[in-house]
Structures are given as structure tokens and as C-alpha cells.
Nucleic acid binder design. Structure first.
Length: 136
DNA sequence: CTTCTCACA
DNA sequence: TGTGAGAA
């Protein structure tokens, strides 16, 4: 179902993810190095994260706050499932499919899956990014 | 200005 | 984990 595709669609640069998760770029890159997340890369080699990555980052942050170390977190995820690779939104192909996801759908999707526990500011950040993405 | 990699008093 | 250099 397209709903699944959307969750793994890489859309956010590390700057946005930093604000969204309250993690430093150093930490985010380190977690990737440890195989905890699998952000995609754009043509400029910059990491682009999906909603799944952000969710996982938030989970990792919570686990660390609870005193779990990286090894422990790795074990937790390894016993479950490896993070799925992100879907890289095509640069040109995007223009033709931009309206595949309407603003209302984006809003509903976020409200249903990501807004739990996030501040209004962060929600706005996410929506702003999505809006910018689908506007181009 | 933002992000990337790599190295380290 | 932080920080700064040098490049893109």
C-alpha cells in the first residue's frame, strides 16, 4: 500500500532532524554508523531521513535516557527487524507525482503517526518540510 | 549558509 | 561525544 511507501520516503535533511529529535548531528551520524538507522543520500551525498528514521531516532533517544547503551539498543533492534532502506524520492520524477500526496493526506498521516508527544513547533517543522517538498 | 568526512591536545 | 578543518 502507498501508505507504507510514504513512511519510508526520505524527505528531511539532518538539520531538520536535529530540531525534531533534539539530537546533535554528531549523534545522528554516529547512530547511522552503528547501523541503527539507514538514511538515504541525495546526489550531494547529504543524508535525507524518512519518518521511520525520525521515529527510530526518538526511540533511541528515549532508550538512552533510560540508561540503555548503544550495544543494548543494537541488540533490541537486531532481535526485531533491521531498518528498511529509505526510498529516495526521484529528483525529476517528483514533479509529475507531486500531487500524489495531498496536503490533507500529509496532515492526516502526520497526525496519525508522528504527532504523539511532539510539540507544535516540531509538527510545524515537519509540515513545512513536506509542503516545500511537494510544492517543487 | 548547510552538510559531509576525518582527525584529535 | 565534542570540535574544528577543508571541501562541496
Amino acid at each position: 500500500m502507498s501508505q507504507e511507501i510514504r513512511r519510508n520516503m526520505a524527505l528531511f535533511p539532518i538539520g531538520i532532524v536535529m530540531k525534531l529529535t533534539d539530537l546533535t548531528a554528531r549523534q545522528i551520524r554516529y547512530y547511522e554508523e552503528q547501523g541503527l538507522i539507514k538514511p538515504a543520500r541525495n546526489k550531494g551525498n547529504q543524508r535525507i531521513f524518512s519518518l521511520n528514521d525520525i521515529d527510530r531516532l526518538l526511540e533511541i533517544k528515549a532508550l538512552i535516557d533510560q540508561g540503555v547503551n548503544i550495544a543494548g539498543i543494537k541488540a533490541i533492534y537486531e532481535n526485531k527487524k533491521a531498518p528498511e532502506a529509505n526510498i529516495v524520492p526521484a529528483e525529476n520524477e517528483n514533479k509529475n507525482k507531486k500531487r500524489d500526496l495531498t496536503d490533507k493526506e500529509v496532515h492526516d498521516l502526520l497526525k496519525r503517526e508522528l504527532l504523539h508527544g511532539l510539540s507544535k513547533e516540531k509538527v510545524s517543522l515537519i509540515q513545512g518540510e513536506l509542503t516545500r517538498f511537494f510544492r517543487n
